[in-house]
Structures are given as structure tokens and as C-alpha cells.
Nucleic acid binder design. Structure first.
Length: 796
RNA sequence: GGGCGAGUGGUGAAAUUGGCAGACACGCCAGCCUUAGGAGCUGGUCCUCGAAAGAGGGUGGAGGUUCAAGUCCUCUCUCGCCCACCA
């Protein structure tokens, strides 16, 4: 076949043929084959496939294809995370129904995705916005409701005034809406929550058993934010009231010289109304979290006149403040102020002239100009009555117990708020009786269909409230005066369980049967964007645990390995953006150089399992196309004879290298190894047919169409993609004679050709006999380091 | 401010995990060839000195460990991502 192959013709031809032969449809099990589930985060159907989608799916496809050739029954599914704000906003803009817009986008995206040549099993395609899918999202909600994990609660929520909806904490970035950048307001509403805090410990502890990259585990742990500390009661003087504080430093209790409460604290609310006071506190409460944190961390507080708390350790009366640097939602909303050993408390104490009592002495006195503002490290207790002299870590438990406190943990993570006052989501399957009491919708009424007659334009209340059909449906089923829940679920609920559905996508009576789960779970590799390391991965782990506890999942952890990939930047090194006009259109490049070249180029661009950013280079793409052309051109110099020993060894090395590096997702070095092999074949006068076949099978995962075409040109009538992955002969990985580096005192002085099994003496005499190297070597030496096959180092 | 990660040619990056730094590719330079194409072929391309052989230097910076350091240790600078008053 000529070098300049016609990619348009052959790619279309083989895609059609694979589809006709159902080559990639994955049965639930195949005799003699092990199942393997490879997953990539499914995309939101934006209607336009960009390079990021290619990078996300076509590159892991290399791994999938190798695993198939290695004899695994590999499930590699595809679907659409279709609910959510973007579709709704797009539909409002175009004045059409989101469902229509999504349907159109999916059709377009599916066609584009098929041009990648990926080994997807299209028969398992899912769409989270289809009633067949969200029926089960609702069903899962009901299961959580039964267990008390889904609950209705009042709470301050983040409100986006532009999108007119509540946002999860995770969707608030720097106090602004992650989608539209509007400044988020705080609002108190009745909402539905999932009790993820009940699972916080397990979500941390179970990470220890997982073989994930450490940074990803750590990100999960930090996100959950477990702090071990103590809850300690402070009595309010001349009152029966007490305030419980949470502290990670109970060892500094003797240094607590004041008490601070969050403005939201119940004790503050219970105080008799004092106009001045409530005005000041009201001012704090009015501020949203951004304002509270934005003011240069300047701490402002209000003294509660006439109110004192009792430090349970010193028995001294201490003043009580209300300050907005204390967060209402974290810990107990109350903090003991230890100015000597906490920087925030120190700042506050300086401003309000509160006493600083040092109770910890650093193990080694601070060097340099003294008067440290405050010392936050560990040390030895002082000024702490009979605890003085103890090491701070040891004193934590003792002091806590001595004042009747208890050791406990607190978490940064808050319960998952799942209510959205938007249209395009799964309706929450709840109805309210005339008294306003919530009732779950019985399973037989699922899917509780999203009505099509709602006014979807944002106006501050849930769009579903405007649907006559929904209200009529509710009254018809439940009775007069009953009304539907009008909020929909956060899209993260839909995509927290989708991987179960791929296993059993057409099941009409179960969300995912245990039999199918047993065959496939857990997921061998889950690849996705770094931005989902915390939220999505955490939520899906949480939901899996909940289902596991109910006997509905076969595993407590869904992902054997989670991997993050990098991002592809524009050619100018900036992020791709329509605003910059620097987006890379993959369709155009596929048209010019073919899907095989685009796939292989993306594999070559950099290490895949590293979170980096890689600028696109059209020249680099063309370079990869040239490589593929050279492989095609090699078919014209085939011969039935044997290859040179060098070429044979190189082939064995390449088999080893490519296999190992695909396994560890280092696709870039695989491509490089294939280039080296094909360059060597190009330099050779002839190439044996058998070596060439091996090259093609190694290339098949990267360039599936070209490899298939060249394979058939050799006379094969079955697909190269069902061939066995080549194996190497470990005894043929090295030449008999190798190049050995010779150093003198650790400096390279030259190289010699030695037998690879040469002894130190043999290597040394060869070095001495070498015409250029020999004269440089000393006559005597004190030591020789010889590592067979690596180095000969002579120390004079 | 905290956490995590990364600093290697003009560019994307390799480096058997402590053993010849810069593989492979892009770009660039010189030459050849032509059916002028995003062509193909040959050679060159870390820096300094040198005609060359060769010598010296070199992986953000400064120290250290080692026969040997891009890789390990200490300090430091810069950049990226995430979180940010979490007691």
C-alpha cells in the first residue's frame, strides 16, 4: 500500500464494517474470558465534540483495545450526562424545550463520537434525562428516603440571583456562581439533603484499601476534612445555659481567655432583644460569606455585656463575644479563644484587648528576635495547674476528660443539598398532603415524569410549580389538596450511579441487577478530569456505599483505580475558548489527516496519567501522520526471510515496552517505541512479514483503521482487533554484545563493546585495550565499581 | 494563608527508578530530488573552546549524601491546580 493512504475511505469502511459485525458489542460474559470494566466520565451533550472529548475517550480506547486483544471481555460504554443547567439555559436561549435540544445534541455528538473509531458498545448507551433512566434516579432517592438518608431540612443555602436557583457549596467559586459568575446570596429554604456526613468516616477510612494515586486519595481526605478534637462545655455564669465548643487543641484549655460564638448560634438568638446588640449582630448576619471572608480577615466582634462564661479548667469567668470569624455551620458554632496559641484568636484578642495566657512552651525556644505573636505548634504545658509539664499531645485527652468533655471528630463536608429550583432535572419523587407533610411517591408511579407544560424561564420559584399537568396528576393520584414537590434533583445525583446502569441498561424492573454487577464491578479504571477528583468521585463513592449497605450493590467502593488526565490547551498555550478564537476543531483535523492520526497524536502529546496541560500542535499532528504513512509504506518491502538480529531484538523490546506502557497509561512512550521500530524497519533493506504483522498488532490500538486495512491487505480475512496481543521472548531482549559506559572517578571517559555477560576483569581488559580509552586509564586504582550491563567505574 | 503538584534544549517531552541526560517527535539550519505537496531523501541541531580529534560545563538556585544524583536529603526561588477565618 502506498504511503499516502486514503484515510477518509478506509476509516469509513472499517467503522461501517465493525458496526455491521457488532465487533465491539460486549456480552455479559464470555466463556474463558475475564471481564474488565473500563470507564470514562460520560460527557454532557453539548452538541459539539471537542478535542477534550477525543482526549477523554479515544486515548483510553488504546488501553481498552489492548485489553481486548489480551483476551479480556472489556466493557467500554458511552452515554450522556444530560440533565442540568447548560441544557436548560441553551433551550431558553433558543426558545425550545430542553428535551428537544438534548435529543438533537445527542444525535450530533453520537455521530461525531463514532468517527473516533472507539471500541464502544453502543447498545448500552444511556441518557440520564430519559424517563427510563431517571425512573431509577427517583427510585434510589426513595430508597435513601426510607433509610432516612434523604431528609428535608431548613438551611441557609447558596442562592444564585441570576440562575434563580440554589447551588451546592461545590458550585460556589470564590463566592460566585460557577456558571454565571453572579455573586451568590444566602437564603433560608426548605430543601432536600443527602446525609453524606454519616458516611464521612467510611469515605476517608476506606481509601486506605484502595490502590489509587496518593494525591487523589489525599484530595478526597482534605475535602472531607476530618478534624479530631474535643467538645467541651462552658457554663454561662448565673444561668442554667451552657455553650459547647469544638476545639482541636483541648490541651490549650487553660489558655482560653474568652468565648466566641457565631452570629447564627442558638444562644445568641435566645438572648433578650437589645436594640444595639441585635443591630450589630444583624449586620453580621446580613453579610454573605464572601463579604465575611473578604474584608482582609479583619475580625469584628460584639461583646455580650453582662454575660460571662466559666472556663471549666481554670474556673475563671471569661467574657463572651459574638464574631463573624466563627462559622455557624462548622463544629458547634462556638469557639474558645486561646490568643496565645491560635493566630485568629490572637488577632481578635489584640483588637479587643483581651488577655493572652501562654500555656504551651515550644520544645526548643524560638531563635532570633523574640516575642512571637503566638505559638501554634506542640510543646510542653505551662500555667496549666497539675497538667503543667506534660507534652501537649498527651494532655489533650487528659484535659478533655478532666472537664467532662468528649473527644470527637468534625468534618468540613456538609450534607449534600440536592434540591434545585430548576426545570431540567429529575423531579424529586415527593408529594405533600394538605397539611404540608411530605410523602414518598409509591414506586408504581415511577418514573414521576417531568412535565412538558412548565414555564421554564427562571423567575425565582421552581418551574414545575407552573405545570398544570403535574398538579392535576398529583391530585388525581393522591387526592384533592395534595401538591407535588416542585424541585428537581441536582445533576450530581444522576451521575453518581450511572456506572451501575451501563451493566444492565435495559432492565425495566431493577436499576442494576446484582447478577450483572457481580460480573463487572468494581470498575478497573475510572478516568476523568481533575476537576471531578473531589465532588463527583466523592458523591458516587457515597451513593455506592449507601446502596451497598442496602444490599443493592455488590461493592462498597466503585472504583478500583481512579485516574485523572490532563487538559489539551490551544496551539497558543492558552486554554481553548471561543472568546480567544483558539479552539481546535477535531472534525477538521480528522478530515485532513484522519482519526488514526488524531488519536495517535493525542496519545503522543504527553503522559496521560499526569495532570498537566498540553498545548495542541498541528505540526505535531502532521508528524504523527507521517509516522503512520511510513508504516503503510513498509508494506512495500516485505519479504519472507528473517530479519537481522538487531531488528529482531528491537521487535522484542518494542513488544515489551508497548505492552507495559499501555498498561500504565504512558501512551506517549509507546508511540515513541513504535516510531523507533518502524524507523529501524525503514532503514532495513527488507522486513519480514511476521515482524511487520507484529508491528501492526502493536499499532492496532492506536490506529485501529489503518492497522485493520494493512492487515487485510496482507491477506487476512478476520479483524486484527480480535488477534492475540503479541508476547515477547525474555531471552531475546538484549543483543549479545552491548555498549558499556566506562567512567574514571565517576566521569564518563568512553564506551566499549562487551559481551553482555562479561565479568569485571573482561570488561576492564577490553577498556584497557581500547585505543582511545586505554591510554586515559591509570595504571593503578583503589577501587573498581562494575555493574554488569550498566557501568564500569574506575576510582584512582 | 493552607494543601497538592511541577520546574530538564527554541517547543512537546524521554531517561531501565541512583548508572552514557536530552530518546522519540516538532521546529530550525545546510544539501539533494521533484509528479511543487501540510511532499520525499541525506546530514546537522544543549552550551563554551577547537578546523578536527577532543576537553570543559550543563536538568530553577545553594548546600549535602554517594564510586556515581534530573532522580535521594536540607534550605531556597518560581510557576500551576485546589481549598481558603474549618477553631
Amino acid at each position: 500500500m502506498p504511503r499516502d493512504y486514503n484515510h477518509k475511505e478506509i476509516e469509513k469502511k472499517w467503522q461501517d464494517e465493525w458496526e455491521r459485525a457488532k465487533l465491539y458489542e460486549t456480552p455479559d460474559s464470555v466463556a474463558g474470558k475475564e471481564n474488565l470494566y473500563a470507564l470514562v466520565e460520560f460527557p454532557y451533550p453539548s452538541g459539539d465534540l471537542h478535542v477534550g472529548h477525543w482526549d477523554a475517550f479515544a486515548v483510553p480506547d488504546i488501553y481498552v483495545r489492548m485489553k481486548r486483544m489480551q483476551g479480556y471481555n472489556v466493557l467500554f460504554p458511552f452515554g450522556y450526562d444530560a440533565f442540568g443547567l447548560p441544557a436548560e439555559n441553551a433551550a431558553i436561549k433558543r426558545n425550545i424545550n430542553p428535551a428537544d435540544w438534548i435529543a438533537e445534541s445527542i444525535t450530533k455528538m453520537r455521530a461525531q463520537m463514532k468517527t473516533t473509531g472507539n471500541a464502544f458498545d453502543w447498545s448500552r448507551e444511556i441518557n440520564t434525562s430519559s424517563p427510563e433512566y431517571y425512573k431509577w434516579t427517583q427510585w434510589i432517592f426513595l430508597k435513601l428516603y426510607e433509610k432516612g438518608i434523604a431528609y428535608r431540612g431548613k438551611g441557609l443555602v447558596n442562592w444564585c440571583p441570576n440562575d434563580q436557583t440554589v447551588l451546592a457549596n461545590e458550585q460556589v467559586i470564590d463566592g460566585k456562581c460557577e456558571r454565571c459568575d453572579a455573586v451568590v446570596e444566602q437564603k433560608e429554604l426548605e430543601q432536600w439533603f443527602f446525609k453524606i456526613t454519616d458516611y464521612a468516616d467510611r469515605l476517608i477510612d476506606d481509601l486506605d484499601g484502595l490502590d489509587w494515586p496518593e494525591p487523589i486519595k489525599l484530595a478526597q481526605k482534605n475535602w472531607i476534612g476530618r478534624s479530631q478534637g474535643a467538645e467541651i462545655d462552658f457554663e454561662i455564669v448565673d444561668s442554667s445555659e451552657k455553650v459547647t465548643v469544638f476545639t482541636t487543641r483541648p490541651d490549650t484549655l487553660f489558655g482560653a481567655t474568652y468565648l466566641v460564638l457565631a452570629p447564627e448560634h442558638p444562644f445568641v438568638k435566645s438572648l433578650p432583644k437589645n436594640n444595639l446588640l441585635s443591630a450589630q449582630i444583624g449586620l453580621m448576619l446580613q453579610k454573605n460569606e464572601i463579604e465575611r471572608t473578604a474584608e482582609g480577615k479583619e475580625k469584628t466582634g460584639v461583646l455580650l455585656e453582662g454575660i460571662h462564661a466559666l472556663n471549666p479548667a481554670t474556673k475563671q469567668e471569661i467574657p463572651v463575644y459574638v464574631a463573624d470569624y466563627v462559622l455557624g455551620h462548622y463544629g458547634t458554632g462556638a469557639v474558645m479563644g486561646v490568643p496565645a496559641h491560635d493566630e485568629r484568636d490572637h488577632q481578635f484578642a489584640m483588637k479587643y484587648g483581651l488577655p493572652v495566657m501562654q500555656v504551651i512552651t515550644p520544645p526548643a525556644p524560638a531563635v532570633g528576635n523574640g516575642e512571637p505573636a503566638c505559638y501554634t505548634g506542640v510543646g510542653y504545658l505551662t500555667n496549666s495547674q497539675n497538667f503543667s509539664g506534660e507534652f501537649s499531645e498527651d494532655a489533650k485527652k487528659k484535659i478533655t476528660e478532666s472537664v467532662g468533655g468528649k473527644l470527637t471528630s468534625k468534618y468540613k463536608v456538609r450534607d449534600w443539598l440536592i434540591s434545585r429550583q430548576r426545570y431540567w432535572g429529575a423531579p424529586i419523587p415527593i408529594v405533600y398532603d394538605p397539611e404540608g407533610k411530605a410523602h414518598p411517591i409509591p414506586e408504581e408511579h415511577l418514573p414521576w415524569v417531568l412535565p412538558s407544560d412548565a414555564d421554564i424561564k427562571p423567575k425565582g420559584t421552581s418551574p414545575l410549580g407552573s405545570s398544570k399537568e403535574l398538579i392535576e396528576r398529583t391530585e388525581k393520584i393522591f387526592g384533592k389538596g395534595w401538591r407535588p414537590e416542585t424541585d428537581t434533583m441536582d445533576g450530581f445525583v444522576d451521575n453518581s450511579w450511572y456506572f451501575f446502569r451501563y451493566l444492565d441498561p435495559h432492565n425495566t424492573h431493577e436499576f442494576s441487577s446484582l447478577e450483572k454487577q457481580k460480573l463487572w464491578m468494581p470498575i478497573k479504571r475510572y478516568s476523568g478530569g481533575a476537576e471531578h477528583t473531589t465532588v463527583h468521585v466523592l458523591y458516587s463513592r457515597f451513593l455506592t456505599k449507601v446502596l451497598f449497605d442496602m444490599g443493592l450493590s455488590t461493592v462498597a467502593e466503585p472504583y478500583e483505580v481512579r485516574l485523572n488526565r490532563g487538559i489539551i490547551l490551544a496551539e497558543d498555550g492558552r486554554k481553548m475558548s471561543k472568546r480567544w478564537g483558539n479552539t481546535v476543531n477535531p472534525d477538521e483535523h480528522v478530515k485532513n489527516v484522519g482519526a488514526d492520526a488524531v488519536r495517535t497524536y493525542l496519545a503522543f502529546i504527553g503522559p496521560y496519567n499526569v495532570v498537566g496541560s498540553f498545548p495542541w500542535s498541528t505540526n505535531g499532528l502532521i508528524g504523527v501522520r507521517r509516522f503512520l504513512e511510513r508504516v503503510a509504506g513498509l508494506s512495500e518491502k516485505l519479504d519472507d526471510g528473517a530479519d537481522s538480529a538487531e531488528l529482531e531484538i528491537l521487535l522484542q523490546q518494542t513488544i515489551k515496552k508497548v505492552g507495559e506502557d499501555i498498561e500504565s497509561m504512558k501512551f506517549n512512550t509507546c508511540v515513541s517505541a513504535l516510531m523507533i521500530l518502524s524507523n529501524a524497519m525503514g532503514d532495513s533493506a527488507t522486513v519480514s512479514k511476521s515482524s511487520y504483522k507484529t508491528l501492526l498488532t502493536l499499532l492496532a490500538p492506536f490506529a485501529p483503521h489503518l492497522a485493520e486495512e494493512l492487515w487485510h491487505n496482507l491477506g487476512h480475512t478476520t479483524s486484527i482487533h480480535v488477534e492475540a496481543w503479541p508476547t515477547f521472548d525474555p531471552s531475546k531482549l538484549e543483543l549479545e554484545v552491548i555498549t558499556l559506559a566506562v567512567q574514571l572517578n565517576g566521569k564518563l571517559r568512553g564506551t566499549i563493546q562487551v559481551n553482555r555477560t562479561a565479568t569485571q576483569d573482561e570488561a576492564l581488559s577490553l577498556a584497557q585495550a581500547d585505543p582511545t580509552l586505554g591510554p586515559k586509564l591509570p595504571a593503578a586504582w583503589s577501587k573498581i565499581i562494575y555493574i554488569s550491563g550498566r557501568i564500569l567505574n574506575i576510582i584512582s
